[in-house]
Design a protein around this nucleic acid. Structure first.
Length: 711
DNA sequence: GTGCCTCGAGTTCA
DNA sequence: CTCGAGGCAC
């Protein structure tokens, strides 16, 4: 396994080391392991073998054990926990793994049910059955069975692509390896979790063996499933509940209830508290019952999931971008903790936004020690907006206050409340600085904006660095070995000041140059060469990624994709951005006509290409920009613009729109020359006439359903 | 003008 | 994950 033995060649027994040698070696190990960890964590580019990684980590631990006084504040033993995740292969989910929308109050649930009825075109009192089940606090897993055999197991990942943990899933008793009487293709989805008793026992074993303990059962489950050595996973008591499915070759039933029964019959553990709820009252009763049992279940749950029971109705409702419309998670009240607010720091983001961050006396909330929390913006801290009106959830928050902290979505620490009785008498309302703490430029708040922004632009170090970090981020250029930390370090030394410097790095600091990367601390011949190669490999870049990487305000990943698809090539896009500066130009009209592009984004694009034309063009000249391909789809309506008019008799307007969009069609509100197809129900008026005048194809609802294969 | 829905931006801890 | 706000339909 150990291809690279250089670092071990001169290794000496730990007992023989002098203090000075130990200190030097710990420093070197911190550097190497930190880099290796970054490479694993961020990219798919391990810089050393797993065996060597483990060896170095053990060596570090051994030296620290003998010289406890020398343990560094940046010690790898503190930073490197579970095995690096990217050592796992990737699996693309055939059906995306979604998350759930949340309900926090009974009113939210009532709204959810009303929304279902509205979408389906049902009367407010029409019967509508749902199901309720506990929401397990673990990590979701997708299991793919082909001809009854377990083929793949994948974590959720970002929903599109997860990690391949097949070898580990095969080690778990509660996951069937073979199925009988199953559909040829069956993807089962569920939750991996660890029970309270198993968690306590595991931590006790870990402590006895001198290992680190886990903060909570969910972390223990995640750490155990993501072991590189399946043997370790085998020894961990992981459990599983099935609650959903992905692709299937034959339906599991007509309702959620039937499908869950079928999964149970196939041998999957399903939750015993699953319940069929014909009415809203049944649903809320189920919630209270499950909440009452929460402490005695023996495993963590964080709410109750409601799903529409009828699967054909589920299909009609369809999906939003990241959540299904037919399900919701009714969350339990979050765990709370009181602590003191020791200070408020100001961070400066990529766009210059000044965000206040609370520095808290460390406190345990929901099994995790929290010491920072976001405070959003100045209105939030003042408890009122710029006109003095109180704002929702805002609080008068001051340094020195006792504050109540919770973790929103069980993740992001937030401040819920302030105890006025314990406010120190010296406290004063927090004042946002009028100048950027990083560069001293005036920090201004535009009318109507809730955020104060540094006006320094790219002369502000914080903005410049954040821009660079954005440029190399995963969804942008994603250069192996050039992550946030490296970019910041290069920026500090003036090696990379703007994005284009990345692509001239080899010319300026490569072989033959007076200053060379390989002589830089922490770099060698090989690693320098690898970085140059990694950079070169990203010169060829899809148009969408480049547009996103530019970091133009209001242009995120999605909008960048839309723009790329619309213009196709860099030269077309680049020309349009210049021409659009004239609001009377056709370029302007075309730009603002793009679905999802409005006046704010247009202005932002125009300004960016005026102010930064030189740097952008210099960058583009160093790249090989790939044209965007029109999205291919097998649906007959993909890419078509359709308009609905008149009364639809077999579905609501919302449903028709959602379905058409799911098939790749664009749904417009009015007929124009861009319209490809008009679906006209009874009572269609001017739109149908206009369509006829323009020679646009007009069909009725039945023909439409036949066209999309859904009659 | 109101009310979705989505997107962008900033966020934590491991 | 959440908030704020842009974009769009009604």
């Amino acid at each position: 396994m150990a291809q690279d033995t250089t670092s071990k060649t001169h290794e000496r027994a730990v007992e023989d080391l002098t203090t000075a040698e130990a200190r030097a070696e710990l420093e070197a190990l911190a550097l190497h392991l930190g880099r290796a960890n970054d490479a694993y964590f961020r990219d798919d580019a391990p810089v050393m073998s797993d065996a060597e990684f483990d060896h170095l980590r053990n060596r570090n631990a051994a030296i620290e054990k003998r010289f406890p006084d020398l343990i560094r504040s940046d010690s790898p033993s503190r930073q490197i926990g579970a095995a690096p995740s990217d050592a796992f292969g990737k699996i693309r989910h055939t059906r995306r793994m979604l998350s759930l929308a949340n309900a926090f109050t009974e009113d939210d649930v009532v709204d959810f049910i009303a929304g279902l009825r509205r979408f389906l075109g049902l009367a407010p009192d029409a019967p509508l059955a749902l199901t309720a089940e506990p929401k397990i606090d673990g990590l979701s897993l997708s299991l793919r069975y082909e001809n009854g055999q377990l083929r793949h197991a994948a974590t959720r990942g970002d929903g599109e692509t997860g990690e391949d943990v097949t070898a580990n899933a095969r080690m778990l008793d509660e996951i069937p390896q073979h199925l009988t009487d199953a559909p040829d293709l069956l993807e089962v989805r569920g939750e991996i979790y660890m029970s309270h008793s198993d968690f306590a026992a595991l931590n006790a074993r870990q402590a006895a063996a001198g290992g680190k303990s886990f903060a909570n059962p969910r972390n223990a489950a995640a750490g155990s499933l993501r072991q590189l050595d399946p043997g370790i996973t085998r020894a961990r008591p992981l459990r599983f509940f099935a609650y959903a499915w992905g692709a299937v070759s034959a339906p599991l039933g007509q309702t959620q209830t039937e499908a869950i029964d079928r999964l149970t019959a196939l041998g999957f553990p399903t939750n015993p508290l699953f319940r069929y709820c014909p009415t809203l009252d049944d649903l809320l009763t189920a919630y209270r019952d499950i909440e009452a049992q929460r402490a005695s279940l023996g495993y963590d749950i964080d709410g109750v999931v409601y799903k529409l029971d009828d699967l054909s109705q589920q299909e009609r409702l369809g999906l939003r971008s990241t959540t299904p419309r037919w399900a919701i998670a009714h969350k339990f009240p979050a765990e709370l903790a009181w602590t003191r607010l020791d200070g408020i720091d100001i961070q400066v983001g990529r766009t210059g936004a000044l965000s206040p961050v609370a520095r808290l006396s460390p406190v345990t909330v929901g099994g995790v020690v929290v010491s920072n929390a976001t405070l959003h913006n100045e209105d939030y801290i003042a408890g009122r907006d710029s006109r003095g009106a109180p704002i929702r959830d805002g609080r008068d928050i001051r340094i020195g206050d006792w504050v109540q902290v919770y973790r929103a979505g069980d993740v992001i620490p937030k401040i819920r409340d302030v105890d006025p009785a314990r406010r120190p008498d010296w406290s004063t309302p927090f004042q946002m600085p009028a100048h950027c703490p990083e560069c001293g430029s005036p920090a201004l708040r535009e009318p109507g904006d809730s955020v104060r922004r540094c006006t320094g632009g790219l002369t502000c170090p914080a903005q410049a660095v954040e821009r660079l970090k954005h440029f190399v981020s995963r969804a942008a250029f994603d250069i192996d070995g050039l992550g946030a930390k490296q970019v910041e370090s290069f920026w500090r030394d003036g090696w990379i000041v703007a994005p284009r410097d990345i692509f001239t790095l080899r010319d300026r600091f490569g072989p033959g140059q007076p200053r060379q990367l390989k002589n830089r601390e922490g770099w060698g011949e090989k690693s320098a060469q690898n970085l140059f190669d990694a950079i070169d490999s990203k010169r060829r870049i899809p148009l969408a990624r480049l547009i996103y990487a530019l970091g133009i305000r209001h242009v995120g990943e999605t909008s960048a994709g839309v723009l790329a698809t619309q213009y196709g090539t860099w030269s077309a896009f680049r020309a349009a951005m210049s021409e659009a500066a004239d609001p009377d130009s056709t370029a302007y009209a075309e730009l603002i006509a793009i679905d999802g592009v409005g006046p704010v984004m247009v202005q932002s694009l125009i300004t960016a290409f005026q102010v930064e034309a030189g740097t952008i063009d210099a960058l583009a000249a160093l790249l090989d920009i790939q044209a965007a391909e029109a999205r291919a789809s097998d649906s007959p309506v993909a890419g078509k613009t359709v308009v609905f008019t008149g009364t639809l008799e077999r579905m609501t307007r919302a449903e028709a729109k959602a379905r058409a969009e799911a098939l790749g069609a664009k749904v417009a509100g009015s007929v124009s020359t861009k319209t490809d197809l008009l679906i006209a129900g009874p009572g269609a008026g001017s739109k149908a006439k206009k369509a006829a005048d323009l020679g646009i194809e007009v069909i009725d609802e039945d023909q439409w359903l036949a066209l999309i294969g859904a009659s």
